[in-house]
Design a protein around this nucleic acid. Structure first.
Lengths: 321, 321
DNA sequence: ACAGAGGTAAAAGGTATGCTTATGCCTCTG
DNA sequence: CAGAGGCATAAGCATACCTTTTACCTCTGT
């Protein structure tokens, strides 16, 4: 089970303020940018230094200058703030009901793991674009798009209604994961379908989408699953697997961070496929809404470091800043 | 210039509490895990719902259950919390002075962008390992390691003292970046060295490491730089370039998030190289400290999704969860 | 050398937020 | 139908935060 956060937690607002100090070069200007008085900013920064136990600013020369530790905290805090912004983008989209220029509908997996990042990217090109997001299962999404209640949808799977145009934008796959301490944690040889079927697993409850996909894949081999425990949420499964209860089955997207940070290990399997595409879908016979086509372009333009470039060996998300 | 965070900012502690509700299935147990009373937890969660403007929990059935929006916020919040944890790992390492089992020394670039992720990974294998981190320029790091005041160091460049063993663990590179709105934002043809030298650029101040490297690379072509403005911090340059002031020169590691989210664009260049290795270094004639070799193993074990697997097209860090 | 400007810290007062304990209501279960 | 588990409300208290005012410090330019 994942531990709660240790007690002295830095406040995002204070980290943001420190960010502004780094950008603007003085506490006074940072305070103005945040619409607070200068003493308030000074106090916040001092409180931040106290909770972190580090001297972030050198005030001895009149003007406040960042210490080396301060520079590091600015960078690390920037990563925190980026995630906060992504969360806020997602929340704003979920909340927006009327007065939106781009109405999205997405399956749970796409909405949870992909959409906020895309929105964050879209914001760079169109800061004032209002976006709304509707979540549901893939059929619901296709339905909503077909009825023109959403401009663009994101669904899992390769079967889309004939009335919809579609394009693959990402992939997902269910994978078998264990805690690093598990005997399978260092296994290199792929597990066969019968071996997987014979193993008691931490699974979602019957009827859930991932459970159905998993049962279907094993069923295609004439096998059935043997649940160890059945839990109602992805997070609960992560916690159970992470605590060493047993192997679990989860979406690869859902455990990317855990795997990158070494908190979980993917066990290779063979003999059955749990891969699914994630597709953008939109009404055929209709011109794509301008904002929707812009979003699609943003998603597809691989404006990132070339794939030939090695990712840092550690590869954790924190290094992605 | 990067805008300050919008006003209603979710509290990490509340997000962590919501995480525990998702894991444990009830507000009461989440409250116990966080060592607060049940009403306090209930109030925090209600406050979180108010600030986000979303209904996260369905309390109508006695037991509190996550709504679809709640599930999404749990996942998005998890990304925030991972970054917070990485920051706390880094801060703890910076603060730790005595009583540590692993003493690290790292150049600024490595410490800012790589070390916290590695520490986060190390924590999964050895949760109780105490790590200390010292920051400095590459010569200082090599010095500290040679004097046995650190067990392991991370430096930039390919020249290491003969007394030290070394191993490449990552790469870095200075790149030319512009705002997406800049004419060069869509340029595909690489800029030549003379073109770069003729362009007024946003640069670090003379004497800084990145400035020296950049001047050296152009100097090797018989050219010199033409500064547009000179700023004292990476963050200030990011802000200036992002606001469209002009092209800037920064470490690729420093702008990974901005590029992934489309807030900045890397302009291809040719004719001069600004690449550098990042190497781990340790004393030759000495057995590597056990914790140090464990860390090295963690860094090198590519226990992540296979590189052959397509990353999500959007590729922002938020999608890395 | 000196005056002015810009920048930061300290003190005092008022407001708001958060936590705790005690208590009541609701919903499932047997 | 009774009991248990779980969540919300209420009252009281402590703490944290922001604001304004004031004072000290450090650079800069004449």
């Amino acid at each position: 089970m994942l531990m709660p956060l240790p007690h002295p937690v830095p406040d995002p607002v204070s980290l943001d303020l420190l960010q502004s100090v780094a950008e603007l070069g003085s506490i006074r200007r940072a305070a103005m940018a945040h619409h607070v008085s200068q003493p308030a900013a000074s106090m916040r920064l001092r409180a931040l230094e106290r909770t972190l136990g580090l001297e972030l600013l050198d005030r001895s020369s009149g003007r406040a200058r960042l210490t080396p530790a301060g520079i590091a905290v600015v960078e690390w805090g920037g990563a925190v703030l980026d995630e906060v912004r992504a969360l806020l983008m997602g929340v704003a989209a979920l909340r927006a009901e009327g007065t939106t220029q781009l109405r999205l509908a997405a399956s749970m997996t796409a909405a949870e793991y992909l959409v906020p990042a895309w929105l964050n990217r879209l914001r760079a090109a169109e800061p004032d674009l209002r976006v709304s997001l509707q979540m549901g299962n893939s059929e619901h999404v296709a339905d909503v798009v077909a009825r023109r209640e959403a401009d663009l949808g994101f669904v899992e799977g390769d079967t889309v209604p004939a009335a919809l145009e579609s394009k693959v934008v990402s992939r997902d796959e269910l994978v078998l994961v264990v805690a690093p301490s598990h005997p399978w944690g260092r296994r290199r040889k792929a597990l066969s379908a019968p071996e997987v079927a014979a193993t008691p697993l931490v699974l979602r409850e019957p009827g859930s989408g991932t459970r159905q996909v998993f049962e279907g894949a094993l069923g295609a081999c004439g096998l059935s699953v043997t649940p160890l425990v059945e839990l109602g949420s992805t997070t609960a499964i992560k916690a159970a697997v992470g605590s060493g209860l047993g192997p679990g089955v989860l979406s690869r997207l859902a455990i990317r961070a855990e795997v990158n940070e070494g908190r979980m290990v993917i066990v290779p399997t063979s003999g059955f496929s749990l891969e699914r595409s994630i597709r953008a879908v939109w009404p055929r016979s209709v011109v794509l809404a301008p904002a929707a086509s812009l979003l699609l372009a943003q998603i597809n333009r691989p404006n990132v470091a070339p794939a030939t470039r090695a990712r840092p060996a550690g590869g954790s998300r924190s290094s992605d800043r």
